[in-house]
Design a protein around this nucleic acid. Structure first.
Length: 519
RNA sequence: GGCCCCGUCGUCUAGCCUGGUCUAGGACACCGGCCUUUCACGCCGAUAACACGGGUUCAAAUCCCGUCGGGGUCACCA
């Protein structure tokens, strides 16, 4: 039975690189009919775990990545929170101590630091002298009489080689002598990540540890812990990490300023920001940016687009297949086809997947979700009048593939629902400032008043006739009409706009624009 | 700096294990054009990569060695 896990720290948000790792774990488990679990790595954080965890769990649900054991769902090996598993860790530490594979160390951090610096000055690799190592209770007592406190360190082997068969990277070797005597328990009794992680993976019967490459160098100490405790080793698979846009550096949430200098990243960020602001969402850079999964949900991306894009960051089915849903991925995923080199995050390519899936989404679903966005932005009243439904459907049909994310409806439909519109200044200046443009528009307005029924075919015919009889080009009038009625230089087809707006509104807006132009 | 990993178009990748079918395929982006009432879409086209140097071989992106480059990691963080 294959069992994999993803172990987030409750920080309050889900990192894009983290989901990618989680996705591979999930896929591998599902592919082999196994289980995927969530374990919460909160050994260090004493913060409000529940509230910091909620957004993370929400992200998983949104993406459709379910977990068989873990928070909310429980499971046979509860609890799945490291903060609640101290007794298990303590038992492991005791066992290691008893076996002489770990020891109490009474050195101060300063003393260790001094040794490290000496080694560095002498250009030799640092290895702790074990000077304050206590292996008997007499030694402990002596050091304690000096007022020293102890931590527990691993007594790492100082010779030999560790050979690891990594499922992604193949055979990797490490010299044991290069490994430090890592601390596994602090003076206050709390345990550190590596110890906790190894104990948990064993207790939870994890068969495959699939994680990002930055953990590769941590593996020897974990193997040592596991072997010392008599555990059977899990299989390891170290995934290449997700890199910054346009570079090979690891993607980090802390370097946002730098990413914003990347053109594509900045574009996607700005687009999302604009939508968030109309929705009245908090947009502090810490919690709302394209490195965090929540950003995409809020702005109105589709989970299948995120999944599809992310899985291709380090994995491929073959030389041409690009669109795959979760079910298809479950059937085909394999660790053997995972790439070894890091892959940089390309927001534009994600955008392309988003475009594809949005256009494939049935109109009904688009209408239902976009209605929610309009409500939240205050463009449509909360108990929504029933005539809004058909109108919105028409708008969305007219806007067509211009709507890339759900939030785009805000920019494409605002003028359909507002009484007063604002004008794009440049466009207004360009198409409505000249006296001859205004004269034409006034004339067109009168012709518009006579159209009956007021629909797309008639409007199109009217404009063509108007252009012919006036001896002008289409462009000489159509832009002025668009700006006057919608306030914008771009948008859905003009005839659609006019019809949806209705004759009365169109005439009123043209009059208002004409009046404003005279000022 | 030590250790470890990695190195095919700007980006994601296929090909590498099992040398020849690779004058290196696809996708995204970019550029040009067509379509067009704007924008978007669509269509057509173009530019663009085997890090370098040796070797093995009739033949190397593919095998071997070296060099260079990039990254990760070296915590009483996870």
């Amino acid at each position: 039975m294959v069992r994999t896990r993803f172990a987030p720290s409750p920080t309050g948000y889900l990192h894009i690189g983290g989901v990618r790792t989680a996705l591979f774990n999930w896929l591998f488990a599902r592919r082999h009919g196994g289980q995927f679990l969530l374990r919460i790595d909160d050994t260090d954080a004493e913060r409000n775990v529940e509230s910091a965890l909620a957004p993370i769990l929400h992200g998983f649900k949104w993406l459709g990545l379910d977990w068989d054991e873990g928070p909310e769902v429980g499971g046979p090996y509860e609890p799945y929170y490291q903060s609640k598993r101290l007794p298990q860790y303590q038992a492991a530490v005791d066992k290691l101590l008893a076996a002489g594979l770990a020891y109490r160390d009474y050195a101060t951090t300063e003393e260790i630091q001094a040794e490290r610096e000496t080694a560095q000055a002498e250009k030799r690799p640092f290895l702790y002298s074990r000077r304050w190592m206590a292996e008997t209770s007499q030694q402990s007592a002596d050091f304690e009489s000096e007022g020293r406190q102890s931590v527990v360190r691993l007594k790492m082997p100082r010779e030999g080689t560790l050979v690891l068969d990594d499922l992604v990277r193949g055979r990797v070797e490490f010299e044991w002598a290069r490994e430090q005597d890592h601390v596994i328990q602090r003076a206050d009794g709390t345990c550190l990540y590596h110890l906790a992680s190894v104990v948990d993976d064993y207790d939870f019967k994890i068969t495959h540890v699939i994680r990002a490459e930055e953990h590769l160098s941590n593996t020897p100490r974990q193997v040592f812990i596991a072997q010392s405790l008599g555990y059977e080793l899990p299989q390891y698979a170290h995934l290449p990490y997700v890199a910054e846009p346009g570079s090979k550096n690891k993607l980090s949430k802390r370097k946002l300023d730098k990413y914003l200098k990347n053109r594509d990243f900045a574009l996607v960020n700005e687009h999302g920001m604009a939508i968030a602001q109309q929705l009245g969402l908090a947009t502090s850079a810490d919690t709302f940016n394209p490195v965090i999964v929540d950003f995409y949900e809020q702005v109105g991306y589709l989970p299948q687009a995120i999944i599809n894009y992310l899985v291709l960051l380090g994995w491929s089915l073959d030389d041409k297949t690009e669109f795959m849903d979760l079910a298809m991925l479950v059937e085909n995923f394999s660790l053997e086809r995972v790439t070894k080199a890091p892959a940089s995050f390309d927001p534009k390519k994600l955008w392309a997947f988003q475009d594809h899936y949005m256009q494939a989404l049935p109109i009904k679903q688009r209408v239902a979700t976009m209605l929610g966005y309009l409500q939240r932005a205050g463009l449509v009243p909360k108990p929504t009048p029933c005539e809004v439904g058909p109108k919105l459907t028409r708008i969305i049909e007219a806007a067509g593939d211009r709507l890339k994310v759900f939030g785009d409806i805000l920019a494409y439909a605002d003028f359909f629902f507002q009484d007063e519109i604002s004008y794009d200044e440049k466009a207004f200046e360009k198409h409505l400032s000249k006296p001859e443009s205004r004269a034409l528009l006034a004339k067109f307005r009168d012709a518009l008043a006579k159209v009956e029924p007021y629909d797309v075919p008639n409007l199109e015919k009217l404009l063509h006739d108007f252009v012919a009889s006036e001896g002008i080009k289409t462009g000489d009038i159509i832009h002025a009409v668009r700006v006057a009625t919608t306030g914008k230089p771009v948008g859905p087809g003009l005839y659609d706009c006019l019809e949806i707006l209705g004759k009365e509104t169109c005439l009123k807006r043209i009059d208002a624009a004409l009046a404003k132009a005279v000022d």
